[in-house]
Amino acid sequence: MIPARFEYHRPSDVSAALAILTEHGDDARVLAGGHSLIPMMKLRMAAIEHLIDLQDIAELKGISVDGGTITIGAMTTQHELIDNADLAKAAPILREAALQIADPQVRYVGTVGGNVANGDPGNDMPGLMQCLGATFHLVGPGGTRDVAARDYYEAAYMTDREDDEILVSVSFPVPEGGYAYEKQKRKIGDYATAACAVQVTMAGGSCTAASIAMTNLSDTPIWSKDAGAVLVGTDCGPGAIGAAVDAAVAAIDPTEDNRGPVEFKKHVAGVVIRRAIERAISRA
């Protein structure tokens, strides 16, 4: 569990980080919290010759709730998400989800940017960002670029980000209505067996908007447009919820692992999705 030799870089601004990234190309990777990358390096499954630690870059940190938009710097930790009162008020689903990520020690170091950028299907933030309709802001040699969270993920560890780009922040409109992040895991520190993020708005007993996304149930996060659409215009009664669950389950493609076989995961996913929807509706 000792990585191969590597050069450690610790730039203090984004342009310096980009310069190192450009100089070394494929041999370089940026380091956020390190919870995915460092174990891969220790297992020598990832050979990174130049590691660019982003922790000294102040412009990558911070949470702002400005007008109708929430912006979170890539190097903001999970703990900071939990600890931020403005965010808890504006988008309580983030706090609920972050509290279900690993344990406090991990959350003190783990970052939003690392969580969303890496493309690990087990990470919780990608599904959540898709639920919230977030936009990812990338910086590269050619300037800045925005990508919708719902378009960012291509396959496990494969994303729309180019090798010479850095994800600098995420932003999303302040969510409205009821919310829930429901996650089943084997233990603290585990990835989800199944997890689901839901935002629902109700008006006059009728659903006006619904967004449903799932974690670790495919090789990318899954935002099910159909599942949300099924709820809209209904009273969110048992029939509508059942239809939404069916639509969401139809969109996933889990694989067997130590958590269990596909049949089990699909069944549990259905239960978790249902509970998330019901809890979100109860808060709407």
Partner: peptide, 28 residues
């Protein structure tokens, strides 16, 4: 309730780290 050393048919250890090998924390 969860702790095991599991092997696949090729004799590969499937539970070789604490991600899969269950060691309870205060939470569990």
């Amino acid at each position: 309730m969860g702790q095991e050393i599991a092997y696949d048919e090729m004799g590969n250890v499937k539970t070789g780290t604490l991600m899969d090998f269950f060691l309870p924390t205060a939470w569990e």
